[in-house]
């Protein structure tokens, strides 16, 4: 996968790599659903081109945190910056005001997201799924979007499926289409929410291969996953979530093979 195909030139592209702001910065992110506090002040920085895996038991808040990054969830406290810009809010004096629909949508065009259940549009062909957002949200000419979409389908190994409907594809193929659909927007950041959890075991490999290629191309990725092998091999860093907090953050190999925190140890022992 070549980098220019997938990464739109960012605002700070002219700066040398070490002087660029982090791709994602989360500061004291808090979120509650009614009486339940699901995020109790999460801090995290993700550098450009870094791959970070979020692991932890279900209900620990890792998916909610991921969904906060593109404002699928509103925040109850703290801030998240993507590419140096606060996501979903605007600061006026001492208050953060939620942005309007249009502005939030503009921010989201730069953040790709892949869901556990693919969420392809079933009434559109694969190609239509890919070009819908480039045409409507980026107002791109159709020929241009189609050309890029076909190239992306080729890259995820589905060059012959452009005119198929999603239901004709296996789960693994659908998820690869979903990745291509997100990449077709040329995002600068990709979020993956348990991308292989809904797949039959023999179909997981193809999806992970595509994600490996994407990581190798220099894409910044945040991945919520239960695939410890993938996290260990591909991620630069791993974050262990528990009870709404980032309990342990560190290099992937260290966190997974020799965790320091007792809860991380217990979790990893249980999933192995």
């Amino acid at each position: 996968m070549k980098k220019p195909d997938t990464v739109r030139p960012g605002a700070a592209a002219h700066l040398p790599a070490d002087r660029q702001p982090p791709m994602v910065r989360a500061e004291n992110v808090r979120k509650r659903f009614g009486p339940l506090e699901v995020l109790k002040g999460v801090d995290l920085e993700v550098r450009r081109g870094e791959v970070v895996c979020l692991i932890g038991p279900s209900g620990s808040g890792k998916s909610t945190f991921l969904r906060c990054i593109n404002h699928l969830e509103t925040l109850d406290g703290g801030r998240i910056w993507v590419g140096g810009q606060v996501v979903g809010y605007q600061r006026r004096g001492s208050k953060l005001h939620e942005l309007g629909d249009r502005e939030i949508c503009r921010q989201r065009t730069e953040i790709g997201m892949v869901f556990q259940h693919f969420n392809l549009f079933p009434h559109m062909t694969v190609l239509q799924n890919l070009i819908e957002a480039p045409l409507r949200a980026l107002k791109e000419p159709k020929a241009e979007a189609t050309e890029r979409a076909l190239a992306l389908l080729e890259q995820v190994g589905l060059g012959d499926k452009a005119s198929a409907y999603p239901r004709h594809l296996s789960g693994g193929q659908q998820q690869r289409v979903a990745i291509a659909r997100a990449l077709c927007m040329r995002p600068k950041l990709m979020l993956f929410d348990e991308p292989t959890s809904a797949l039959d075991p023999e179909l997981v490999g193809d999806v992970l291969t595509v994600m490996r290629d994407l990581a190798a191309s220099g894409m910044t990725m945040i991945v919520v996953t239960h695939e410890m092998g993938f996290a260990r091999d591909i991620a630069d860093r791993v974050v262990f979530f528990e009870a709404g907090q980032a309990v342990e953050v560190g290099p992937a190999k260290q966190v997974i093979t020799e965790p320091r925190h007792a809860r991380t140890k217990a979790f990893l022992a249980a999933v192995r």
């Binding site: 249009r102 949508c105 790709g112 997201m113 259940h117 549009f121 819908e132 409507r136 949200a137 979903a178």
Partner: peptide
């Protein structure tokens, strides 16, 4: 999930309703 996916791709609420 359909509305979420459309929103995550940057489609506005109106576009999501009409197209998805």
């Amino acid at each position: 999930g359909q509305g979420e996916a459309a929103g995550a791709l940057g489609l506005t609420k109106m576009q999501t309703m009409r197209r998805v």
